[in-house]
């Protein structure tokens, strides 16, 4: 049962390593977008502190969105997807493996880099911890929901823009609870409610999204 899961996971991690420039480009995009905001809104420290959680979260969301095409695009073009769909093992398993590999190689670097960028916005220690935690809990949901969108738009002309239209409204709750958790912590009301809701969302997405994604992939491969 786990054989295809591990095979897909190992292969996608190896591919990410071989094509590590792509991974670094995503990280670079994240850093640059975050660094743009002080130029736009001014470098007043209080204001920067106030917008930091939202800026970091929106940047993480956009970085995810722009890298989602990597998840299935290559496999769709070269016929690997077809072969995977013909595997006797359950489709959701290897779909999950692909999403896990994607999260490890795309979102995890963002989670690691975020506290460093938070320092540029003069965020304090506790806020940075909550920010990392919220990103660690929230980015899996972004990957899972994004995977459904990526599967639905596979092979379509103008798929990138369409993907944004499909998944960004779905990302709003994650943005609200993710950025909200840091603000709640800073305002003294405590971030645990936000973080619990994010974990609940992550679990729900983990259970439901792979099925939708598998169905969408079957439709796309027709």
């Amino acid at each position: 049962m786990l054989k295809p899961f591990l095979a897909v996971l190992a292969r996608d991690l190896l591919l990410a390593w071989r094509g590590r420039a792509d991974v670094l480009v995503t990280l670079g995009f994240f850093v640059i977008v975050v660094c743009l905001f002080p130029f736009g809104v001014g470098a007043e420290p209080n204001q920067l502190r106030a917008i930091a959680p939202g800026v970091l979260w929106v940047a993480a969301l956009l970085a995810t969105l722009l890298s989602l095409h990597r998840l299935f695009g290559q496999d769709f073009t070269d016929g690997t997807l077809e072969q995977l769909l013909l595997s006797p093992e359950p489709t959701v398993l290897w779909v999950l493996a692909k999403i896990l590999a994607y999260w490890l190689t795309t979102s995890l670097p963002l989670v690691v880099a975020a506290p460093g960028l938070g320092l540029l916005f003069d965020m304090e220690q506790g806020g940075l911890r909550v920010l990392s935690l919220s990103l660690a809990l929230g980015t899996p949901i972004l990957s899972l929901l994004g995977a459904v969108g990526a599967a639905l738009t596979l092979g379509l002309r103008g798929g990138g823009m369409l993907l944004a239209l499909l998944v960004l409204p779905l990302f709003v709750p994650i943005l609200i609870f993710g950025a909200g958790s840091v603000e709640a912590h800073l305002s003294g009301s405590g971030a645990s409610a936000h973080l619990l809701l994010l974990s609940g969302g992550a679990l729900a997405a983990l259970v439901l999204a792979p099925w939708a994604c598998a169905a969408a992939l079957r439709v796309a491969a027709e």
Partner: peptide, 9 residues
């Protein structure tokens, strides 16, 4: 038709 080959492997 497609050989299911990844160019990086």
């Amino acid at each position: 038709h497609a050989a299911a080959l990844n160019d990086l492997l």
